[in-house]
């Protein structure tokens, strides 16, 4: 897969700048079929993503909640008839107030959530990649039982994420869970997993690592198979140690795959909703909430503050955009076209 050039599209003839009035028509004649081919997706993206996105940004500039959503509140009587009264506090445009409140910490725990999200993302991705790489290296050698190991190690990926979340929550139950009973049988005191922010986050990270490592492992294993064996042979002849071969051949050879899976893994983990939502439920006292679950709870629990949830959403998106910009720049510097 690395053999194909990065940009197989034939270069456009430099028709552009000095064009005449008919440029548009020529462009149309030349490209109409390409545009026709992408049209369905452009429409879908516009309707399903950009319209809601714009709406979301707009909502974040209002004070919309469930209570002030309706212009008038109507009460139906069981004997028939309906009385409507104007909603005394209708929603209104409030400018950047939501952002000010969120960023200054007046409302919600944005900064705490952000910190937890970053720790969560970093922790998960580092372990995903590290363990995935380690296992891939081991599995990449010929040995007895390799196929069996591979199947067993891939198993967690076959389990839907929400099922894994339940399974681990079950295991980490403080009184009746397998984890504490194993600890006890080893003579270690049982741990009150969800009583402490860090042990609680630990349970979530363990869950996510468990279900995410197989993907990394298989991806990296696939990447290793594309590294030409001659390189290893030559290195061996030169007397390179196993570690040197790993550092100088395997790692560079894995770069394209690694870059992609790390980027994807980061984005996926950042936005990973079910694990935190189902395993820790934000316990203790909301201290393991991440941005995505916090935004969800703002919108669909309590007073259902839609505008606040949208504000979180916009902020989350901004963080991700900044991250990918830096990532892209870093890649560019190293000569990858992306």
């Amino acid at each position: 897969m690395t053999t194909v050039t990065a940009d197989p599209a034939p270069p456009t003839p430099p028709s552009g700048r000095s064009a005449r009035p008919s440029r548009l028509r020529r462009s149309w004649e030349k490209h109409w079929y390409a545009w026709a081919m992408v049209l369905p997706v452009v429409i879908v993206l516009a309707v399903l993503i950009f319209y809601p996105l714009v709406r979301g940004i707009w909502i974040s500039l209002t004070n919309l909640t469930e209570a002030n959503q309706a212009a008038e509140i109507c009460t139906r009587s069981i004997t028939g008839g309906e009385v409507c009264a104007e909603n005394p506090n209708k929603w209104e445009f409030i400018g950047l107030d939501n952002y000010v409140n969120v960023l200054s910490g007046n409302v919600g725990d944005f900064w705490q959530w952000t910190a937890i999200t970053l720790i969560w993302t970093l922790g998960c991705v580092v372990f995903h990649y590290g363990l995935g790489l380690g296992l891939a290296v081991m599995l990449n050698r010929p040995m007895w039982g390799r196929g069996l190991y591979r199947v067993l190690l891939v198993l967690p990926w076959a389990v839907p994420a929400f099922v894994s979340a339940f399974a681990w929550k079950f295991i980490f139950n403080e009184r009746f869970g397998l984890a504490n009973s194993l600890l006890t049988s080893l003579g270690i005191d049982p741990v009150d997993w969800f009583a402490n922010q860090w042990t609680s986050l630990f349970t979530a990270i363990v869950t996510n690592i468990w279900l995410g490592v197989p993907f990394m492992m298989v991806a990296l294993l696939g990447g290793m198979q594309t590294i030409p064996g001659e390189l290893y042979e030559a290195a061996e002849i030169d007397g390179a140690s196993a570690w040197q071969r790993f550092r100088n051949i395997t790692l560079p050879g894995l770069r394209p795959v690694s870059m992609t899976v790390i980027l994807l893994g980061t984005i996926w983990t950042f936005n990973m909703f079910p694990i935190i939502f189902l395993v820790t439920e934000g316990q203790p006292a909301g201290e393991t909430e991440i941005l995505v679950t916090g935004a969800f709870r703002a919108a669909f629990e309590g007073i259902r503050n839609y505008s606040l949830a949208s504000t979180y959403g916009v902020l989350i998106l901004s963080i991700l955009l900044v991250f990918s910009m830096f990532y892209r720049r870093a890649l560019r510097k190293q000569g990858e076209v992306w």
Partner: peptide, 8 residues
């Protein structure tokens, strides 16, 4: 993030 799209 689904978080930004879910409300709209």
């Amino acid at each position: 993030p689904a978080a930004i799209l879910i409300v709209p």
